[in-house]
């Protein structure tokens, strides 16, 4: 029976691995600190949910989730990329909050803080992914696909251009690279996969509300990326594994019940700190990341 608990954790790991890889693309590979990533997660979740509950088939809702998130990735980056470094980060933070505010207040569409319960499980070709192990198969497949797609894209010309932009934007421009367009593409691509993760999340938890998509969520994902190592897809997966699993052993240590909540938080924070101090570049980090700080 414990397999249910393990499968549950594995499913969450898959969802967050996709989120971490997609954020890594924007922040690690393309060098843009994105503090609004949870918004793409949310857009994917709500798009998929609303479409399925309106009668559309899951595969359509799933792809639409990616598409909507990518669209918003473009809409955000076009104005935001006029800003540099810290200011860009703040713009993304603002975007995240605006999206959450819309989800909270557009009650006719989203039911606002009441959230949307009863989200159906995914159905493909008449088969329902209801059982835990089947859902894991679905989530795992999407995660693996994400990894290989991103790896291919980054191994090709796009990846090289991103590397160049990270090192020097003016030199990249002098080589004929439309830096702004490349960054918009990176944003859209990262947002797109975060949208897929949102769809997987919504149909798994079967209830979504804006409280699941706060800045704290983005910071958790950012932590996974940092811990795993910027510019390493494998690192993002490792980061997701570690941060999802880290609080779990603490449930099994017999802590005095009066302090159980607080003690677990303290131990969790302590372990996190230890990990970061031991491997400041992240577990799979190749080099010290530069580029987040304002240019010039």
């Amino acid at each position: 029976m414990i397999e249910a608990y393990i499968l549950h954790l594995l499913i969450l790991i898959c969802i967050y691995a996709i989120l971490a890889m997609s954020l890594n693309l924007i922040t690690g590979y393309a060098g843009m600190l994105n503090l609004g990533h949870a918004a793409f997660f949310a857009i994917g979740a709500y798009t998929s949910t609303l479409l399925v509950m309106a009668g559309f088939p899951f595969w359509f809702a799933f792809l639409a989730a990616a598409g909507m998130a990518a669209l918003f990735g473009v809409l955000l980056s076009i104005p935001a990329l006029r800003l540099r470094g810290d200011f860009l980060a703040i713009a993304t933070l603002g975007f995240g909050e605006i999206i959450r505010s819309i989800l909270l207040n557009w009650t006719e569409l989203t039911r606002g803080p009441l959230g949307i319960p009863g989200i159906p499980k995914p159905e493909l070709f008449g088969f329902e992914f209801g059982a835990l192990h089947w859902y894991f198969v679905l989530a795992f497949a999407v995660t693996v696909a994400t990894y290989f797609i991103l790896r291919k894209i980054l191994a090709g010309n796009f990846g090289i251009v991103l590397k160049a932009i990270r090192e020097s934007e003016p030199v990249s421009e002098s080589l004929g690279k439309n830096v702004k367009l490349v960054k918009i593409q990176a944003f859209a691509l990262g947002a797109c996969f975060a949208g897929l993760a949102g769809s997987l999340f919504a149909h798994y938890i079967t209830f979504i509300d804006p409280s699941s998509f706060t800045l704290a969520e983005t910071i958790l994902i950012l932590l996974m990326v940092t811990l795993g190592g910027m510019s390493s897809l494998k690192g993002s997966i490792a980061g997701a594994i570690i941060l999802i699993l880290l609080p779990e052993p603490l449930r099994f240590i017999g802590l005095p019940s009066a302090m159980v909540g607080q003690l677990r938080q303290i131990i969790y924070a302590g372990l996190l700190l230890a990990l970061i101090l031991k491997r400041p570049k992240g577990l799979f980090g190749e080099k010290w990341f530069k580029g987040i700080v304002s240019e010039g």
């Binding site: 414990i2 608990y5 393990i6 954790l9 795993g228 190592g229 494998k234 690192g235 490792a238 594994i241 570690i242 699993l245 880290l246 779990e248 052993p249 099994f252 990990l275 491997r279 577990l283 799979f284």
Partner: peptide, 17 residues
């Protein structure tokens, strides 16, 4: 080293469970 750390934590959870 990274892979070892990850394996370590996964094993801890499975063992504890």
């Amino acid at each position: 080293k990274g892979e070892i750390a990850v394996m370590g934590i996964v094993l801890c959870v499975l063992f504890a469970g």
